[in-house]
Design a binder for these strands. Sequence first.
RNA 1: GUGGGCGUAGCUCAGUUGGCAGAGCACCGGGUUGUGGCCCCGGCGGUCGCGGGUUCAAGUCCCGUCGUUCACCCCA
Length: 440
Amino acid sequence: MIKAIRGMRDILPPETSRWQWVESVAREVFDLYGYQEIRLPLLERTELFARSIGEETDIVAKEMYTFPDRKGDSLTLRPEATASVLRAVLENRLEKGAGVKKFYTLGPMFRYERPQKGRFRQFWQINCEAYGVEAPELDVEVILLLMHILKRLLPGELRLLVNSLGCPACQMKFRAALGLFLINREGLCEDCQRRRTTNPLRVLDCKSANCQGILHNAPVIRDYLCPDCAAHFARVLELLNRFNVAYELKPRLVRGLDYYTRTAFEVAAVGLGAQDAVAGGGRYNGLAKALGGPDLPAIGFAIGEDRLLELLPQDFGQDLRPRIFVAALGEPARERAFTLVQELRRKDLAAEMDFEGRSLKAQMSMADRLGAAYAVIVGDKELEAGAAQVRPMRNFASPASAAANQEAVEGERPPVAQEKVRFEALVDYLTGKVRSEENL
RNA sequence: GUGGGCGUAGCUCAGUUGGCAGAGCACCGGGUUGUGGCCCCGGCGGUCGCGGGUUCAAGUCCCGUCGUUCACCCCA
């Protein structure tokens, strides 16, 4: 048997309905904040990611699905969406004009990593990007939007972590100071000794307790922010306070992509294991220019949809149960039932029936298992009488009442209010019943 | 890329010192010549991940390999 390749999984029903639910909520909130959807190719020129994410990052250096196409051009399955969105915006001149330009997109990303809890080689992101405005109000609006989506979906506690990474000038000063600090430190773990040269910022959020101890007196980026960056960050925090958004200042928060500037944030959740970041984002004012475009302020975030789904309660999702199950006995009745099912569906009522000529008992059992609200029974007797039996199916909701019922009637079938309804009136009768119940 | 755990029925898992491959759930049928939840009876269902080796005999021991899972690393 051929199986799915490593790190790639099938998302199956009923799980898919939970995904649809999440996506519909996200779309609603995006609408509310004035964001418009943009749909993008999954493949881009390798150069796009190398230049935007950073040659030295792990993502580019060892985690991309990169291969030559038939012509020999180097292509890459997108490892993230930001670079693609910006490319599309610049290519189509969407940044032109006054005001903030707001976009969202969602879909699969690809990274060649070792799979583990909450980490897949194909994973899904819900992505938000806003361009053209430098004001800290936009930073806050984007964070509010993110928290809005998450709070509508998740009952559990979320931690919003916030930091400022400054502008390139601040970063240069800070890197120099950090490098100086690290160069004389003894006792850093093996990884950090490597990071010291490859990616010094990463040393800051090493998980080793030992390293954290050593880093206790390390320089903090906040002390290296230029007056503009400091003012921007102060304003962001002030507004978060004003809107009662709980956050934690995390001076050591750095992000894995080189393009971030100023505001950086992350949302962590409990219950996800080691991969506890549900969403992350920040400002990336320099990226458009780095890609050969204009000077374009930008900010955005990505939600890890797979991880988000992991946190959702099991009963989240749409009700996919059919309203009506039509049980038929004998060939003429099946013929009638098939017509009835189509008529119900034309009235937008979910209806099902059996095509295999199974016993009435088996069909009733199917109706129950599918969760139908009503079973319609059609047999020779009903055809002759010109009226079908309509049986409400949800009388025995709880196992307790089922047991009580069983004892009460002692061997006899529990009394169910089963009605005879003439075929001509059946569709209207059923639509009426179901609609009135749904409005309760 | 590194380290540990685990691969047996559709699912969750048992399987003793190597000796006839099991249970629960699910599914199908019957208990009711035409009525769902519970209960009772019966049935279907297996390349024991794959390849090699040791042995009279391997799900069990050995080697390899693939997958999976958790952690490191990294990130959503």
